[in-house]
Computed example of a mutant assay.
Amino acid sequence: MERIDLYQMHWPAEDGTPIEEYWRTLLDLKQEGKVRAVGLSNHNVAQLEAAERIGHVDTLQPPFSAIRRETGAELLPWCRAHGTGVIVYSPMQSGLLSGRFSAERAAALPADDWRSRNADFKGEALERNLALVDAFGPVAERHGVSVAAAAIAWTLAWPGVSGAIVGARSPAQVEGWLAAATLELTPEDMDEIAHAIDWTGAGAGPVRPAALDSSRIWRSGSPRRRWGFRAG
């Protein structure tokens, strides 16, 4: 390869290195032609602002799902305003929104699986999350897709989201959610899911995109969407 297409700082530096220093390094790599675009992952708005003052942030990679919705509050609007592409990760919330998870499966998770120690997979939080998964069922059925595809399409329906990184362990899993690439959720679908989030109390963050600019909000099937793939 002559250059890397996209190079991102995955987490803020934990050794005290200021963002101005490592962001300048990434911008230098872009200026030298070694990478086409540079971005940040798991950074907040204040950190994005600090980086943008030095040079443009091409992309942001945050967690985002119908359970973990905080990204929709400030990060997505900031990225839209600054022309920063957003590649969300964990849109199925580590399997919870796949439509194949259950309380029994959660209880049987082995000790070496980090999910066995995660609050989303235990007690009342798990009950709320699984109730939300059930609410995705009718939406998925209307469109003839899997619950997983509907959950991924929900993230892609938000303005500012450019693509989603989805993990798979087998070709069958890929086939189960691939329909999300062309699925266009309707305003009624989004309202139904928002109401389900409200009454289940699952997760945290805004339950729907802002009502403005509706001509763009609901076009989750935009041809400009791109997918990210990873193993596992």
Rank of each mutant, 00 (worst) to 15 (best):
M1Q: 12
E2Q: 14
Y7R: 01
Y7G: 08
Y7D: 11
Y7F: 15
P12V: 11
E14F: 03
E14P: 04
I19D: 04
E20C: 03
W23Y: 13
T25G: 07
L26N: 03
D28L: 09
L29V: 13
K30S: 12
G33H: 02
G33T: 03
V35D: 10
R36Y: 05
R36H: 08
A37S: 12
V38P: 04
V38G: 14
G39Q: 08
N42K: 08
N42Y: 05
H43C: 12
N44F: 05
L48T: 09
A50L: 05
A50D: 07
R53H: 09
G55S: 08
D58N: 04
L60F: 04
L60K: 01
P62Q: 07
P63A: 14
P63M: 14
P63R: 10
F64Y: 15
S65M: 06
S65E: 09
R68Q: 14
R68Y: 14
E70K: 06
E74D: 14
W78G: 08
W78N: 05
R80P: 06
A81T: 12
G83N: 12
G83V: 13
G83D: 13
T84A: 13
G85P: 06
I87M: 15
Y89A: 09
S90V: 12
M92G: 05
Q93E: 14
Q93Y: 05
Q93F: 08
S94Y: 12
S98R: 02
S98N: 06
F101R: 00
E104V: 03
A106D: 03
A106N: 02
A107I: 02
L109S: 01
D112M: 01
D112P: 01
D113V: 04
D113S: 01
W114N: 02
R115S: 01
S116H: 06
S116A: 15
R117H: 15
N118T: 11
A119F: 00
D120N: 08
D120S: 02
K122D: 00
E124W: 00
E127I: 00
L130P: 00
L130W: 00
L132T: 03
V133F: 02
D134M: 01
D134K: 10
F136T: 11
F136Q: 02
G137F: 04
V139H: 06
V139K: 04
H143Q: 11
G144N: 02
S146K: 04
V147N: 09
V147G: 04
A148V: 05
A149L: 06
A149K: 01
A150T: 07
I152R: 11
I152V: 15
T155P: 07
T155M: 02
A157D: 10
P159N: 09
G163K: 05
A164V: 15
I165W: 04
G167S: 13
A168I: 06
S170M: 05
S170C: 08
P171Q: 07
A172E: 15
V174W: 10
E175S: 11
A180F: 11
A181D: 09
L183W: 08
E184V: 10
E184K: 15
T186H: 06
T186L: 08
T186E: 07
D189L: 04
D189S: 03
I193W: 07
A194C: 11
A194H: 03
I197G: 03
A202S: 13
G205H: 02
V207K: 12
P209Y: 10
P209N: 06
A210P: 06
L212I: 13
S214L: 11
R216P: 01
I217T: 15
W218K: 00
S220A: 15
S222V: 04
P223N: 10
R224M: 14
R225N: 15
G228F: 13
